[in-house]
Amino acid sequence: MLQIFCPHCGELRAEEEFHAAGQAHIPRPLDPNACTDQEWGDYLFFRDNPRGLHHELWIHAAGCRQYFNATRDTISYEIFETYKIGEKPSVTAKPKAAAPGEQA
């Protein structure tokens, strides 16, 4: 079970208080009507789904009810940072060599 630092509450809390809400930094197109079906479909459904570093959206559902972003390794599940909506991630590349645990 993950332990997540809520940047709004300023505390490390158990994953049970949170919900994952998908990939972060996917802004809604400012003019949806100008999007082609292709572009709109891309916005709605297509995701990076990376193996490794991932910026994702979480909500402190059973806490402050605020959304925030996390930079997390999808293999080791290590969380490198959490930051508020509107802020940019400070970790954009894996800080250390690939850790074990990636199993065949």
């Binding site: 994952a20 809400a21 599940y77």
Partner: peptide, 8 residues
């Protein structure tokens, strides 16, 4: 589980 995870 709700998050993306490749850790099996």
């Amino acid at each position: 589980d709700g998050y993306v995870g490749y850790g099996q």
